[in-house]
Amino acid sequence: MTASNKDPTVTDTTEAKPQRKIIHLDMDAFYASVEQRDNPQLRGKPLVVGGDPNGRGVVAAASYEIRKFGVRSAMSCYEAKRRCPEAIFVRPRFDVYRSVSQQIREIMLSLTDKVEPLSLDEAYLDVTGIQEHHGSATLMANWLRAQIYEKTQLRASAGVSFNKMLAKIASDINKPNGIAVITPEQAPDFIASLPIERFHGIGKATAKRLHEMGIYTGADLKATPVDTLEFEFGKRGRFYSQIAHGNDTRPVKSERKYKSVGSETTFRDNISDTDSLLAQIYEQNADAFYQLSKKERLAHTITLKIKYSDFSQITRSHTLHTPFPSAESAHYWLQKLLADAPRHLPIRLVGVTYSNLTTLEDVSVQPDLFGL
């Protein structure tokens, strides 16, 4: 797959609406890069932010030096240490990350007020109609990256295209510290060659089902009748068909409100053993809490979802007066929720969801993130 550095849009005065210009900006290994910036002794070293070398907690961020060992965010620290015995572990400093993120946000807002933050380290920008930098979204993206480096000494990658899906995919093409552009002319061939796993919104479980249907690339997905996709995936099936055709009209939203954050997994083989179920539930809980902290949210309610071998499913929830301070703090309640659930059939899926959310600024006590 290739992408050019040509600007994806050229203003056509004969059109009622100009071609949209969307930038997806993604900081490179954000938490780890901040730590390496602030501590020169960590530069060039295999660094894990989060947890401890004894295997407690999960990886919040991994430097590029340790990623070559297969270490990724949300992985258990035990597994990270197993893969890279020389790994250096540092505690997260979320107050610092939020401060740096605000600096970056201000740079974005100096260009456009249409900024949709996805987390502390990434955001969409709609720069349609902006005349600065000769109206070029590519020049704007490069200006943003240069300004961020000048003010924070941190690197960012960018993707430029005419919709959110393609801009997000493009930002990952030339990481780290790179930019890629997908023009309207390039989009059909680019999408056709794209593995379905790379489509935003298609996770592992959906990709597996699509593979079973003989669908491996964007071309395969585009050739599949929308009725077939809707039969298999419901309303999501129509969305999959639309993105295979390059149609993504979702607007960049300047405010993003999260009602819930969760993670779930479907087992290869159904599970009945309680200890095995709890291990899987704790793994999903770690992932869900990691996502919660990335979105700078705390939660008062936790929900356990269980799907049985006959595809029936139930949920069990518990709400606290104060928010859950860590993933580990939820383990007691997850055990209780599992114990309260019927166990008449083997279980094929478990999920953990946090809801009844609040912001970090709304609570007076700093949460014990990642169980540290």
Score class of each variant (00 low, 15 high):
80 A>N: 07
115 V>F: 09
81 K>R: 15
243 I>A: 05
192 A>C: 04
95 D>P: 02
125 L>R: 05
127 V>G: 07
100 V>Y: 09
357 L>C: 04
304 L>S: 04
358 T>G: 14
167 A>L: 08
233 F>C: 01
223 A>D: 13
46 P>F: 00
310 D>H: 08
278 L>I: 15
263 S>D: 11
78 Y>R: 14
20 R>G: 11
100 V>D: 04
90 V>A: 07
7 D>Q: 08
311 F>G: 07
70 G>Y: 05
160 V>E: 08
367 P>T: 10
119 S>T: 04
73 S>C: 03
350 V>C: 03
351 G>M: 00
221 L>T: 02
212 E>I: 04
301 T>V: 04
327 A>G: 15
66 I>G: 00
30 F>P: 02
342 P>Q: 07
327 A>D: 15
163 N>I: 12
317 S>V: 07
269 D>V: 08
233 F>Q: 03
207 A>S: 15
6 K>S: 10
49 V>R: 00
111 L>K: 14
292 L>W: 01
224 T>K: 06
94 F>E: 05
311 F>A: 06
201 G>C: 07
57 G>C: 02
292 L>R: 01
139 L>F: 14
150 E>Y: 13
76 S>K: 03
31 Y>T: 01
330 A>Y: 10
329 S>M: 06
45 K>W: 01
58 V>H: 01
195 P>D: 11
363 V>F: 06
254 S>K: 14
96 V>E: 09
74 A>H: 02
369 L>K: 09
269 D>H: 14
118 L>K: 05
63 S>L: 06
239 F>R: 11
297 R>P: 00
366 Q>H: 08
231 F>Q: 12
281 I>M: 09
13 T>H: 13
58 V>Y: 08
117 P>F: 06
303 T>W: 04
7 D>W: 12
184 P>N: 10
335 Q>C: 15
